[in-house]
Computed example of a mutant assay.
Amino acid sequence: MSAPQSEPQARKPFLYVVVCASGIAGDVGKLITAAQEANWDVGVVVTPQGLGFIDATAVEAQTGYPIRSAWRQPGDPRPLPPADAIAVAPATFNTINKWAAGISDTLALGILCEAHGMGIPITALPYLNAAQAAHPAYARSLDVLREMGVLLGSYEPHKPKAGGGADRFRWEEALELLAPVVSRQA
């Protein structure tokens, strides 16, 4: 008599968290924890400049996956499963404008530009100061991202040179914005 076979476990949805160079990037563990508590597996993609703003060892221990920041070589295995959704948090002025313009000069931007064509739901939580937000390129870039279906967070830009508004940045808003979109796909 053979042992009963167990049912295969359903794969959890996989969330890419794209982290940009910002003073609050070191708190990305808050989003990772919230996503894991909401039954997501999480992988982190960081802009090259963003690497200096996070504790890579802690993030890798929390997610169980290596952080991605550079393209892999042809033939190298993919270190992360395919994304079911993407959260860009914090999304900086630089990344928002390059992404909207279709500039793909980093792995993070390459993933974001390609994700649109693949129909992957994306949310972005902008984090920038009011002087940056006053630049006309920023408003145009947000319009382009909205046209692409990107779900944008509600953070109001902080005063320049005022130490940011980290206490007002809601990491969990990324999951709140994605929830209705992801549930329709399930």
Rank of each mutant, 00 (worst) to 15 (best):
A139I: 05
A34F: 03
G102H: 06
A137M: 07
D84N: 14
P13H: 03
Q62M: 15
A61D: 11
A124V: 06
T95N: 09
R68P: 01
K30I: 09
P82C: 03
I96C: 13
T47P: 09
I54N: 04
P77M: 08
I111M: 12
P8Y: 03
P13F: 06
W171H: 01
V182H: 00
T106E: 02
A3R: 07
K98W: 10
R11L: 14
W40C: 12
A56F: 00
Y127L: 10
A115M: 06
A10M: 11
S154V: 10
P180V: 11
P74I: 06
L125C: 05
L142P: 01
V182C: 08
I24R: 03
G29C: 13
G50W: 10
F14Q: 02
A101R: 12
V19Q: 08
F93D: 11
K30D: 15
G153F: 08
A134G: 04
Q62C: 15
G52H: 13
L109F: 05
V18P: 02
P77D: 11
P74Q: 12
L112I: 01
G149Q: 08
L109A: 05
A174Q: 04
E114T: 13
A89V: 04
H116K: 14
N129C: 03
S22N: 11
L142H: 03
A166H: 09
L128M: 15
G153Q: 04
T63K: 03
T63S: 06
A130Y: 05
G117E: 07
V18N: 08
C20T: 13
F53T: 06
T63L: 02
R170Q: 09
K30C: 10
V181L: 04
S154P: 06
A58D: 14
I24Q: 03
H116S: 08
Q132D: 04
A91H: 03
G165P: 01
E147N: 14
P180I: 11
Y127R: 09
L152W: 01
A186W: 08
N94Q: 13
A58Q: 14
S154W: 14
Y155A: 10
A166V: 00
R11W: 02
